[in-house]
């Protein structure tokens, strides 16, 4: 063991991050939270009916379903993939819950989880082992799941009603400390998700796969296995969200969830996760979901504005976030070339 001599000891000439990079990084990670806080403050002042317990409860409940779907999407996008099937899978989960509940609440919850998890696993297997493009694979299952949904509901003509007193229905409608169970479930899932992403080898390897799949593979990380589980998880969560939403409205409705995958992607990206993968946070996604939902709520508060404007505003946010991301990654590239 030779001690390394002084002359060789200065390999890393320290180049601190530039101020611009630092600010850019902050905007990336916390931007959605700041905007969310601003909108909440302004709305509280502007609308009497905004900062009420009922309205907060309402926003939380509406957010919980999208949040659960967006959680799975966050992991998939961080790994460098995309899951377009979640909207259809979400709707399928609801209908399966309503279908299964006739044999008891347990079947009512297990049926959607098994089927939706299975669809997710199919996505994952095709992406991970079949080496197919996630965009195409999940587009195919988006169509397939929607078709399956129409088949089991006679083209959507029969909407199944779930019995009010069933345990599963209660899971959607009941409250704890005045807050609905779906909100609690979402909160718990996000806490678990945050720990998984930040503090486990699993999460670490997801970040590595998204950062550079080739490097992850050559470092000996189990890329294919991880990828498959990510899509399985995304399908499971979409199915769960669908089942909870069905329980909340006590019916399995076929027309829900169209375009839901895009809302989830928007929330993830607004939350600061790079669409190219490799970086992102679960907390950011939560802020992104709330931001979308608060915007919707505020537009409802204004009342005179058509609710369609909600999409316009959400779209504008998304465009702004993607523009900032592009600007940031160009800053990174410039740096790499400079070194």
């Amino acid at each position: 063991m030779t001690a390394v001599t002084e002359k060789t000891a200065v390999v890393a000439a320290d180049k601190g991050m530039t101020k611009r990079e630092w600010i850019a990084g902050l905007v990336q990670r916390r931007g959605s939270l700041v905007v969310l806080a601003l909108i909440v403050i302004v709305s509280t002042v502007a609308f009497d009916s905004f900062a009420t317990v009922d309205n907060a409860r309402n926003i939380a409940m509406q957010s919980s379903f999208l949040a659960i779907v967006a959680l799975g999407m966050t992991f998939v996008i961080i790994s460098g993939g995309i899951d377009l099937s979640v909207g259809s899978v979400y709707a399928l989960g609801g209908v399966l819950a309503a279908l299964g509940i006739q044999w008891g609440s347990l079947t009512g919850i297990l049926l959607p989880l098994v089927v939706c998890g299975g669809i997710g696993m199919l996505n994952g297997a095709l992406v991970a082992y079949g080496r197919l493009a996630p965009f195409i694979v999940t587009l195919a299952t988006l169509l397939g799941a929607r078709g399956l949904l129409l088949a089991i509901t006679d083209e959507g003509s029969n909407t199944r009603v779930m019995p009010r007193d069933a345990l599963l229905t209660q899971l959607g409608q009941g409250t704890l400390l005045g807050v609905g169970y779906p909100v609690w479930i979402a909160v718990v899932l996000f806490a678990v998700g945050a720990v998984m992403l930040q503090r486990t080898r699993f999460g670490h390897s997801v970040l590595a796969i998204g950062g550079s799949v080739e490097a992850a593979r050559l470092m000996g990380l189990p890329v294919a296995r991880r990828t498959m589980w990510l899509y399985t998880g995304s399908g499971l969560l979409a199915g769960l969200a669908g089942a909870l939403a069905a329980a909340y409205s006590a019916s399995g409705v076929t027309i829900v969830g169209v375009g839901f995958e895009l809302d989830a992607i928007a929330a993830v990206v607004i939350g600061g996760t790079l669409l190219t993968g490799g970086a992102g946070t679960v907390g950011g996604t939560l802020a992104g979901v709330l931001l979308l939902m608060v915007i919707q709520n505020v537009i409802n508060q204004i009342g005179t504005l058509s609710s369609h404007y909600q999409s316009v505003v959400s779209g504008a946010f998304l465009a702004a976030v993607v523009a900032i991301q592009a600007y940031l990654s160009r800053a990174h590239l410039g740096r790499e070339r400079g070194t």
Partner: peptide, 25 residues
């Protein structure tokens, strides 16, 4: 073949990160 977005330490230990007694990194 390293992951540019991750920290130096993470790149060194990816796949064999030290864990505490709860199994967390």
């Amino acid at each position: 073949n390293l992951v540019p977005l991750m920290s130096v330490a993470s790149n060194l230990f990816l796949g064999r990160e030290p864990r505490n007694r709860f199994g967390l990194l």
